[in-house]
Write a protein that binds this DNA or RNA. Structure first.
Lengths: 237, 237
DNA sequence: ACCTGAACACCGTTCAAGT
DNA sequence: ACCTGAACACCGTTCAAGT
């Protein structure tokens, strides 16, 4: 991806304040977490590393690559922290919640995963989910479909959830608590035009007392039920 | 949302070249479709409307609002064009494919839906899916879960698919056709580290000959099977 | 009421010059 | 090899001035 900063046993300049790709990525993550996506600026990053913007370009090709690297670092750490389980169903829950919580904690990760879904970060998640699909007994081509469906759902809902949370925290007074927020949303849904939005109106009553993470897992369970209900094997290619 | 340009029977300046919110949004959509998200610039937009950037700000609060309006216009049109069906299963397929194709045709719509999921555009899709969930016989709180799961999956997969297509068209030579692209992707997956990515490697063989839209619908069917397999009703709130 | 376009503050990125 | 920081090209947005 980028120029390696160490190739072979060259001049060992191990000053502890040396600028490395790793330090840059860590600083970028800190900025991203603190000030959101707009907070990551080459000037701000340079300031936090006590250099000029140009210095960063020696280690990193451009801003896009920096975002990819930051995202991959967070996702790799997250996947590493997910506890395993002998029961595939439970293991899938844990992987899914790991992603969900990571994106909630770092909303920019969600945006980045949608922007560059072919990068390693996405593959890491896919691999983890896929192994459990295999453990579930799914075989052949159906593995591919099952894992892809889970991945699409997990990323999609996690991103939407994180964006909505951000909105709740920012647009509304940050003091507004979750209960009040859900009630406000329910009130808004109830005021929608009765002819255009009959379903949304009727379902508004279920909004308060609603738990995002539980709802998220309920969706996973729907997919898992669908997977289990199908002919579970078929010969490979 | 913004200042209305007509309120009451004021001065009727119906010159056909008058700047209206509608014309601005249409021009924005054209720019977005032609040059992607980066193509929408207040300067470029002003040029295409033969005015200065400042003029646009009289009709539209800022760029964010413009993106919201453009997205809503595309989604509203898309939902209007979806053919109905007496069979809920089929109706859901059509709604889902409508969204899928719209985002493939206008990738910026996908990015925007992820960025502001609480806007009307998302509600339009939710409402359509929800009605069919109702038609499926789901009752009470389960309606909420089923509709939300479908929405999360549909948006998530559509966005990922559109971004991947863009990547294929841009990064690879645009001449590369779909078959070659899938084979290249499969080759890449097969070269992954065997210890870290056993599942992804093993599933690479299924990548060629893979049809995105069919795979997308297969995922929908998994969810629908899950919905059907559950206790289908429960008393309302 | 509505439009014009210069000006402001801020970006990502480059690059000649340093060590 | 690696860093510095001014400079370039470009943005979103504002606003005094026009009609």
């Amino acid at each position: 991806m980028a120029k390696k900063s160490t190739r072979g046993p060259e001049r060992e300049r191990r000053r502890e304040d040396a600028l490395t790709r790793e330090r840059i990525v860590d600083a970028a993550i800190a900025l991203l977490d603190a000030d959101g996506e707009d907070g990551l600026t080459f000037r701000a990053l340079a300031a936090s590393l006590a250099t000029g913007p140009g210095a960063i370009y020696w280690h990193v090709t451009n801003k896009g690559e920096l975002l990819v690297a930051a995202t991959d670092a967070v996702v790799a750490r997250t996947m590493g922290e997910v506890r395993g389980s002998t029961r595939p169903h439970e293991a899938i829950h844990r992987i899914a919640l790991g992603v969900f919580d990571a994106i909630e904690a770092h909303p920019w990760v969600g945006a980045q995963l949608s922007r560059a879904p072919w990068e390693t970060a996405m593959l890491r998640i896919y691999e983890r989910l896929g192994r459990q699909v295999e453990a579930l007994g799914v075989r052949g081509r159906a593995q591919f479909t099952a894992a892809s469906t889970l991945l699409g759902y997990v990323i999609g809902v996690s991103v939407q959830n994180a964006t909505a949370s951000q909105f709740a925290r920012r647009e509304l007074a940050p003091s507004t608590n979750r209960v009040d927020f859900l009630e406000a949303a329910a009130a808004r849904w109830s005021e929608l035009d009765a002819r255009e939005y009959p379903f949304t109106r009727s379902v508004a009553a279920h909004l308060p007392g609603h738990d995002d993470r539980k709802e998220f897992l309920a969706g996973i369970d729907l997919i898992l039920a669908g997977i289990a209900g199908r002919p579970i094997s078929s010969s490979a290619t």
